[in-house]
Amino acid sequence: MNKLVRIELYKIFTKPRTYIGFGAVFLIVVAIQLGFYFEGEEILDFVIQNLKDSFLFEGKLINVYTVSYIVLTSLWIHVPILIALVTGDLIAGEANSGTFRLILTRPVSRTKLLFAKFFAGWTYTYLVIILMIVLSVGLGSILFGSGDLLILKGTLNIFKAEDALWRFALAYSYGILSMTVVASLAFMLSAFAENSIGPIIGTFAIIIGITVISTLGFSMLRPIIPFLFTTYLPAWQLFFDYELDYGKISRAVFTDLAYIILFLSVAFYHFRKKDILS
């Protein structure tokens, strides 16, 4: 099994498209951080100008945590696309290049092969998030130093630095879980496709489509919105509520887990029955 996973990881990391994800995360994080390094005071002054009419702010407003939070909010739109780029190719890519028949002549069960592929795709997802953490927190610490976390989230929430750290740890952990849902969706679509364009575009279309429809048709779709996985993609923000809403957090976690199980079950079921023609 380990060998299978290693082979799948090797395949992922020898494809140039894998590095698009890492490159994009690197560029976006560095661009945001440099932007805040040079013009952060002006940007923040503009954002909190209403508050500055009534309050004096003392202390370091721009610091590693505040900038990392902004990086997170900017990236949650992009990361699903980067994840789908690789995970949507995991099965369909093999079908497209006509290597499945050859692979499946080996004494490896389809379930094991699929599991190895998914685990390799999940490792990529995990590494993209880890790169985000390392760049946001690592580079942010060098550029901005530590300080309290300031968040405008309907209310103004200010967390002590030591309080910010565990919130980030939980938010990133949740981020890995919600991105696993995206990876599972792309993986499922990949099981049905013969080339990787379909699952990749399909994943974007499903995520963007459901998000737009549930936002625009909010009143009409209200009863089903709590059951859509897209509702919980930005739920990492729940860890930055002043009082944690454990009910909402559990609902988000369980919905994500349910969708992961659903998508993977469909993928495994379909692939095991699939007639391999390529």
């Binding site: 940007i43 954002v47 209403n50 508050l51 009419d53 009534s54 939070y69 902004i70 909010t73 900017s74 949650w76 968040i151 405008l152 989230k153 309907g154 209310t155 103004l156 936002t215 930005p234 923000q237």
Partner: peptide, 22 residues
């Protein structure tokens, strides 16, 4: 004890879409 003008806090920078209308 002081007067505070009520204000709508911006959410655009933080991407907090849920509270945009709050």
């Amino acid at each position: 004890e002081f007067d505070v003008k009520n204000m709508s806090l911006p959410s655009t920078l933080t991407g907090d879409l849920e509270s945009l209308s709050k």
